[in-house]
């Protein structure tokens, strides 16, 4: 009786482990499959916002991972362009008075962080999306801090 119960328990544990491992494999596969298109699509939106923001705006280079900065800072790119050697472009979820939007920020070592605009909603201004100066200033300060910490850890170029 005990042997039968043990066998059943072992079978259940094995099947559960196999199932969980299978789910893990699917997620890993999907992550790899979607990464490139997701990055290219986001890059295109970000560059659209940067081009509208300023004539001298940078373009986006390789994606950058900032360790221990949190989920919100996973979408960052190196800034590319004439005279832009040490900058980053961030696509960040900014929650204003009217819900979340994708805010684009440009951090430059000398000038600090600038709010460039909103990606993904055609013709939307920050005011229309409920992004008040206080909200954008909060993100500017936070990105400045994240980049300063990154520089302190010696991860900048």
């Amino acid at each position: 009786m005990t042997t039968t119960t043990n066998k059943r328990g072992a079978r259940q544990y094995t099947l559960t482990a196999i199932l969980l491992f299978f789910l893990f494999l699917i997620l890993t596969g999907l992550q790899v499959f979607t990464e490139r298109k997701a990055t290219d699509g986001l890059r295109s939106s970000v560059e659209g916002v940067l081009a509208k923001w300023s004539i001298a705006a940078p373009t986006t280079g390789d994606p950058v991972i900032i360790p221990q900065a949190g989920w919100n800072y996973l979408r960052a790119f190196e800034a590319k362009g004439k005279g832009k050697t040490d900058g980053l472009v961030f696509a960040v979820r900014v929650t204003g008075n009217s819900g979340p939007v994708t805010g684009i920020f440009y951090w430059d070592k000398r000038a600090g962080t600038s709010f460039c605009g909103i990606a993904g909603i055609e013709g939307a201004t920050p005011e229309q999306c409920g992004i008040t100066p206080r909200v954008s200033e909060y993100w500017i300060r936070t990105i400045d801090r994240v980049c300063a910490e990154r520089a302190a850890k010696g991860e900048s170029k």
């Binding site: 789910l23 990055t39 993904g120």
Partner: peptide
């Protein structure tokens, strides 16, 4: 675990199809 898996799959598909919305809606 399957619910968490489903949510992650949905997020990955969303970011594949509409990457900009995945940034703003990812958490939600």
């Amino acid at each position: 675990v399957a619910l968490a898996f489903s949510a992650t799959v949905y997020y990955l598909i969303l970011r594949w199809m509409i990457p900009t919305l995945a940034v703003s809606l990812g958490l939600y």
